[in-house]
Design a protein around this nucleic acid. Structure first.
Lengths: 271, 271
DNA sequence: CGACCTTTTGAACGTATTCAACCGATGTGG
DNA sequence: CCACATCGGTTGAATACGTTCAAAAGGTCG
């Protein structure tokens, strides 16, 4: 990476207007709240850093960014410049097969990082789209690497986050390679619930932000199978669903369904 | 990572004898050939580094290590201390479900890195086993991070390698989530072939180092399906197989089978 | 309100799994 | 060195799971 370390406020400036659903310039709100005051700081990149270091890191976060529902954060083929941390809202990433089929590769909620798919080739491999009105913090990757080389904690934290991505991907490989439809869907619900709990939300009651088709695409089953399975879980009294609204009645029961082929490391590692 | 940067020559010393197939001390050959003279250097971690930097990096590689067929390089639960680069031979990594089932998560050949599954938690998540007599270079990760903070090229190269791991894992997610058995197996063969070519081996003729069961586990199908599919490919004149020996007759034909659901980025990204 | 999209549910179908038998290669011990 | 046990691989037949096709209901948004 030869890029000089300069502040890049005009993020993706050449791409505005390239597509109908791209981010437009007015969305850029210059200067976010400070990282040291952000309540996501523990889970975010500065995790484990000292006050002084966080201030230093803070300089990397040039912009906060609004992304409306159905807007792209980036697209496959876009030049990779930045990582994004979800500050509010909900995203999906997906890839497109040559034959046009779309496969969801992940859902990201508050505090999670988006954009690592661009690091290898300096070009994004995936599409990232907001599933609801959202906000992200934008971190210039070149600057980030520069700073990380001065702050070992940060470097290590980043390696851990990439490693966590890998763990997650591996969990998905195991889910897709070794679990049946019911198990996958149970694991998926438990994972969602788990991630919500961590963020202080209710564990057993939430709105699905994605469609059945997106869930199915992510889990490697058809949307009809998702629908049928959710109905079945409802009949069994494990959950209740009406459209996007989902309530888990028997988290232990779901665990039993998922755990008939459970992964070591539990729910975090899956889906 | 609070670990002080010290040379750790007595790699995994407390674990010798813990299991029957562990590496034993006599396997440690102190000091390998120099990285700058290694013909893997381009593809390996020092990729893109200058002569001077490579020398610096070279100091990280404390030991070369023999691992015999069926021996573990590490096991899930082991403390993570080092990354390993395959210098010769062939490995598989796998995870074990709670119910005892084993799932292969990857095959590694010459020049590929093993061990990143330990970074997140400082504990290995996977098992790594040699499928034939092999040799690895051992890189202390703490020292590595230290050095990487001084050599931006190295840091960036490492980020790229982790990112490549992610790309690969994502490719597998797509393969497992979106392809049918025939497609998976075709993609797998093409991927093997591709990786061999890169390393200067014949593209169309090689010995499978793994069993049908391991292939199946990796691809999310049963061993019988692997066997049947290989037989079918043979009948179609695409390949010929006898036991482990495999010859590809029609690489384009295989491509067509795999490409009925091809991934963007081609064969590299898959399997 | 009407058009469209998402979801649900049913029935027929197809692919991969399961169960089982058999073959061949490999390796060990008498 | 051969006999035998074991492991890996192949192949067939029955089964099960998830898909596909189809129709209709429920929501959402202009």
């Amino acid at each position: 990476m030869e890029t000089p370390v300069v502040v890049n406020l005009t993020l993706r400036k050449n791409q505005v207007g390239a597509g109908c659903s791209r981010m437009s310039r007015r969305d850029i709100t210059s200067f976010p709240a400070r990282c040291s005051e952000c309540n996501l700081r523990r889970a975010c990149l500065p995790g484990g850093m000292e006050e002084r270091e966080i201030d230093c890191f803070n300089r990397l976060v040039h912009t906060r960014h609004r992304v409306e529902r159905d807007e792209s954060l980036y697209r496959a083929g876009d030049t990779f410049k930045s990582l994004y941390v979800v500050r509010s809202g909900f995203f999906k990433t997906y890839a497109i097969f040559e034959d046009g089929r779309e496969q969801v590769t992940g859902f990201q909620m508050v505090g999670e990082i988006i954009g690592m798919d661009g690091i290898e080739t300096d070009t994004h491999q995936l599409y990232s789209v907001a599933l609801e009105d959202s906000e992200v913090c934008v971190i210039s990757f070149a600057s980030f690497e520069e700073v990380a080389s001065h702050i070992l904690t940060l470097q290590h934290q980043f390696h851990k986050m990439m490693s966590r991505e890998l763990t997650h991907a591996r969990g998905m490989m195991m889910l897709l390679g070794g679990m049946r439809a019911e198990e996958r869907i149970a694991a998926f619900l438990l994972n969602l619930s788990h991630r919500l709990v961590i963020r202080g939300y209710a564990a057993t009651e939430f709105n699905l932000r994605m469609t059945r088709e997106e869930i199915g695409s992510y889990l490697g089953v058809k949307l009809e199978t998702v629908s049928r399975t959710l109905s079945k879980f409802q009949q069994q009294g494990l959950i209740s669903v009406q459209q996007k609204y989902l309530k888990i009645h028997d988290i232990e029961g779901l665990n039993r369904v998922a755990n008939s082929a459970a992964l070591p490391g539990g729910v975090e590692a899956v889906a």
